[in-house]
């Protein structure tokens, strides 16, 4: 189970609204490489993972990703506060506003709703850990792309924090893959599914 803590992992305090930028950043909530998909990828892969160290890693990184959904949601929320209809139209935010007003709805930058199709839980430890490492790199690239789109220091600060977390998680999943290889039967040279075939 989970217990909610009434704080962000890292502060978000944005003074200037920017609904166009908010629509782009929304992708890190509900887009193909966003935090919602990340959390569900790791938390769902845990159950059949054959090593307690790696179950711990998936649990703890998956839980941290839930906190990242909240951070990115805080960024989007603060970028879309106190908007006038004119600002909404000028920023091209009207396509989002008409369906969600300024509510947070997990979708990609292009408005595609979140989908479980964005992640895999393959039931094969090697396969899943490679997916996880790739996912961290894809999310890092997305943060790089977002960072190029703004010069607002209030937005850059939490985006840079989140980008750095992708790099740390990539490193930790890399260690998990090494730990997994360490427990494989040496006869399992090609690393056939160690969750299923044993």
């Amino acid at each position: 189970m989970w217990i909610y803590e009434k704080k962000l992992q890292y502060p978000v305090n944005i003074k200037t609204p920017n609904p166009k930028l908010a629509m782009a950043i929304m992708s890190q909530i509900g887009g193909p490489d966003g935090e919602l998909g990340a959390s569900q990828r790791y938390l769902n892969q845990r159950y059949t993972m054959p090593d307690p160290r790696i179950i711990g890693m998936l649990t703890d990184i998956g839980s941290e990703e839930l906190g990242h959904i909240e951070m990115v949601s805080a960024i989007v929320y603060q970028l879309t506060r106190n908007l006038t209809p004119v600002q909404i139209k000028e920023a091209g935010f009207d396509s989002y506003y008409v369906d969600h007003t300024t509510g947070i709805y997990p979708s990609s930058a292009a408005g595609v709703p979140f989908s479980a199709k964005y992640f895999q839980s393959k039931g094969d430890a090697i396969t899943d850990l490679f997916e996880d490492m790739a996912a961290e790199q894809k999310a890092r690239t997305t943060y790089d792309n977002l960072i190029r789109l703004t010069d607002d220091p209030d937005v850059l600060d939490p985006l840079r924090f989140l980008r750095e977390r992708e790099i740390v998680h990539f490193q930790r999943f890399g260690e998990s893959l090494e730990n997994l290889r360490g427990i494989l039967n040496s006869a399992n040279y090609y690393a056939d599914n160690p969750e299923f075939d044993r």
Binding site: K7, L8, Q9, Y10, P11, R53, I54, G56, M57, D60, I61, E64, V168, H169, R172, E175, S176, N179
Partner: peptide, 24 residues
């Protein structure tokens, strides 16, 4: 005070993940 809590908490998050792969 909240900022200090976030800083200490972050140190724990980092150490927690590291300890998952290096438990000893």
């Amino acid at each position: 005070l909240l900022r200090s809590i976030q800083i200490a908490d972050f140190a724990l998050v980092e150490a927690n993940l590291f300890l998952d792969s290096h438990p000893d």
